[in-house]
Amino acid sequence: MAMTCPCGLDKSYDECCGALHSGSAAASTAEQLMRSRYSAFAVSDEAYLLRTWHPRSRPSTVDFDPRQRWTGLQILSTTGGGVFHTEGTVEFVASYRVRGRAGELRENSDFVRVDGLWVYVRARSD
């Protein structure tokens, strides 16, 4: 049985974010990239996260907490970030559990296209 994609869309991981993680497809919108990055955190895919991080803000490594389990993603809003845009924002809530305790990460993220591909820049501070 195929694993359901962690990003929350009703597709298998392989036909959804897994295709982006493997490099057989590229995100066509900022929201799709956001969803695939959430899924990359859920499956601990450091290479994909680093590849989709803007070079100016990309860390050298991604630290995963082995006790943390990502449990859900809710997209609250998007601005720009469509197939004809060069920048966009995605506001979201990512739920997780650490040692049985629930938590959530709320963020409004900036995305831009670099050489035609969507990349994550940073969390907005406004």
Rank of each mutant, 00 (worst) to 15 (best):
R58S: 13
G81L: 07
A26L: 10
G23M: 06
T89W: 09
M34N: 06
Q74T: 15
W70F: 13
E15H: 12
P55W: 05
E87C: 02
S22C: 06
T71W: 14
C7D: 00
G72L: 10
A25S: 13
V98H: 05
S12C: 02
V62P: 01
A47N: 15
F64T: 09
G23Q: 09
S22Y: 01
S39R: 09
A47H: 11
G80R: 04
A47P: 06
E91T: 12
L33R: 02
R58G: 08
S12P: 06
Q74N: 14
A26R: 08
S36T: 06
S77D: 15
A25C: 03
L50D: 06
R37V: 05
R35C: 03
V43W: 00
R37M: 03
A27V: 01
P59T: 06
L73W: 05
G81Y: 11
S39T: 13
A42Q: 07
T29V: 01
Y13W: 09
T52R: 00
H21N: 09
S39K: 05
H85F: 15
R37D: 08
P59A: 06
T89C: 05
A94Q: 08
T86C: 07
Y13E: 01
T29N: 00
D63A: 15
Q68G: 10
F92W: 02
R56G: 10
T86E: 11
